[in-house]
Each structure stands twice: as structure tokens, then as C-alpha cells.
């Protein structure tokens, strides 16, 4: 009974994790870029969703769109500032710059939304029903469905469609792609806009499960690393499986061993994997 509840929790959590990591899957896997401000975009988007629902009285689906729009804007702004570094493929500098952006976003959120924790109530979170003796809310189901939908779309759009091929070509050799007539700059902007929109969507879906604070986002970044790296960089199906696995692991570890150390344990696994198989993450064999 308890095990079933934890398993179902884990499945919901796992879809949330996978959804949070979608943006990074594309960012790192396809365009070979990183964003350490990922967690702070999640935080800001959660606040935007809350503000649109509680402050403006907009319906929840519209609030989700508003949050995604904010995510796109943030993504475009960040990419505009880093364009030179992106063209130079200077990953380490991009990493530090995005850390700086994250710090800025935290300040902006504190300034605009204040330091009080907020709770986002959606109409879906009031509906709950029983599955195999375990309770879930409609919000949980929506997380699972949106998660599956996002990954299905990504799979067909990225691994089958021309869009993915273009982005991959840009990542492989930006100069050659430019010669082939691809507007490289536009691809980079599109990838970052997608990253912002994806994490904002995840925030709008997942954030109703927890209080919204300016300090959230840290854990989401960790989860994203684990999902993207363990799933195999650039593998859509791998990210989905890793997200699901991590969710179930976290729920079971949290339920039966120690809730405080659940994500830490997952991160320990990540460190071991990275150290034992650094090639799994090789951007260009051995770095530069």
C-alpha cells in the first residue's frame, strides 16, 4: 500500500523531473550549450504563473502561456548577451555567465515578487481520485500527460524532423552550417528560446506541488544535470527514462531511507558516473 503510493509519487515526480530537463536535453544534447540559470528561470516562471493566476485572475492555461512567454524572453535575452561566447563555443565562460544571470534573476524575483513564499492553487489541484489505493490529484496526472506529450513532440521534432537536423549541424560545425546557408544565429536564439519556454512550462506544471520561493531552483538544476547526463547527452528517450527512474528512486529513497538525502544520493550517483565514464559526456573528445 505504502509502496504503491510511493511508486505513484515517483512516477509523477519523475515526469516532473523529465519535464524540467527537456530544455537542457536540447540545449546540451543538440546545440552543445549550457545554462546554469536554468533553475532561476524555473523559479521566475513559477512566480509569473502564480502572479498571473492569483494577481491577474487569469485562467490557469493562460497563465501557463504567460510563463512560457516570459521564459522565451529570458532565453532570448541571455543568448543575446552571450552570442560572442556561443560562437566561440566557450562552454566554460557560458557556464559562468549563466551562473551570473541566475544570480541576477534571483535579485529580480526578490525585487518584483518579494521574499514571501507563495502557493499556486490551480483548479486541477482540487480534484483528486484514487488509483490502486493511492491518492493522486488531477494536477499530478496533468504533469504526467504533459511530460509524455513534451517528450513525444521532442522525439518526432528533433530526432525525425529537419529542425533537429539543422540544430545538430549547427552544433557540429557552426562555420560549415553557415556556409551551407543556415542562419546559425537564428538557430542559437531558437534553441535558447526553447530552453526558456520548456523550463517555464515545467515550472507552471510542477510548481503548484511546492511553495514558491526566490530560493527554489537549486534542486531543479541538480535534477536536470542528473537526468541529462544519466540519460545520455542528447538522447530524448534516455532523458525521459532517466527522469522517470530518478523520480522513482527519489520517492523510494525519500520514503524508506531519508528524504533529506534523496537528491544528494542521486547526485552522488551522477558524480560516480561522470568520473567513471567521462566520455559519456565528452563534448569533443578530451575537451579542446
Amino acid at each position: 500500500m505504502n509502496l504503491v503510493q510511493q511508486l505513484i509519487n515517483g512516477i509523477v515526480l519523475g515526469h516532473g523531473y523529465a519535464l524540467i530537463a527537456v530544455g537542457w536535453t536540447v540545449l546540451l544534447g543538440v546545440a552543445r550549450l549550457v545554462n546554469f540559470g536554468h533553475g532561476q528561470i524555473y523559479m521566475l516562471a513559477a512566480f509569473v504563473t502564480w502572479w498571473a493566476v492569483a494577481g491577474l485572475g487569469l485562467p490557469y492555461p493562460v497563465a501557463i502561456l504567460a510563463a512560457m512567454l516570459a521564459g522565451v524572453l529570458i532565453g532570448l535575452l541571455m543568448q543575446a548577451a552571450m552570442l560572442r561566447l556561443t560562437f566561440a563555443q566557450d562552454l566554460v565562460s557560458i557556464m559562468i555567465v549563466t551562473l551570473g544571470f541566475g544570480h541576477m534573476m534571483r535579485g529580480i524575483a526578490g525585487l518584483v515578487f518579494g521574499g514571501h513564499p507563495q502557493v499556486l492553487e490551480t483548479p486541477l489541484s482540487y480534484i483528486d481520485f484514487e488509483i490502486a489505493g493511492a491518492w493522486v490529484t488531477a494536477q499530478d496526472l496533468a504533469v504526467v500527460l504533459v511530460g509524455i506529450a513534451a517528450f513525444a513532440l521532442l522525439h518526432f521534432g528533433l530526432e525525425r524532423g529537419t529542425l533537429g537536423r539543422t540544430a545538430r549541424m549547427v552544433a557540429e560545425d557552426p562555420k560549415l552550417a553557415q556556409l551551407a546557408g543556415i542562419d546559425v544565429k537564428r538557430v542559437y536564439f531558437a534553441v535558447f528560446a526553447f530552453e526558456g519556454a520548456a523550463v517555464a512550462l515545467a515550472a507552471a506544471m510542477v510548481a503548484p506541488r511546492t511553495p514558491i520561493l526566490t530560493s527554489i531552483g537549486f534542486e531543479e538544476v541538480i535534477v536536470t544535470f542528473v537526468v541529462v547526463v544519466l540519460g545520455g547527452i542528447g538522447s530524448v528517450a534516455g532523458s525521459y527514462a532517466a527522469g522517470l527512474g530518478l523520480g522513482i528512486f527519489t520517492a523510494l529513497f525519500g520514503g524508506f531511507v531519508s528524504p533529506a538525502y534523496a537528491t544528494t544520493a542521486a547526485f552522488g550517483v551522477l558524480i560516480v558516473v561522470l568520473v567513471l565514464r567521462p566520455s559519456g559526456l565528452a563534448m569533443r573528445a578530451g575537451g579542446r
Binding site: 544528494t264 551522477l270 567521462p278 579542446r288
Partner: peptide
């Protein structure tokens, strides 16, 4: 631990270490 790691992966693992230490 990070002896064989370079650049981005090195930074990622050191970041991971910070997160684990914080937890």
C-alpha cells in the same frame, strides 16, 4: 576524483561536489 576531467565536465563535477557538500 576529477583528475581526468577537463573544462566543462570538471566544472560540472566540482559544482556537484558543492551541491553535495551543501546538502
Amino acid at each position: 576524483i576529477t583528475l581526468a576531467l577537463r573544462e566543462f565536465v570538471f566544472s560540472l563535477v566540482t559544482y556537484a561536489a558543492t551541491v553535495v557538500a551543501a546538502a
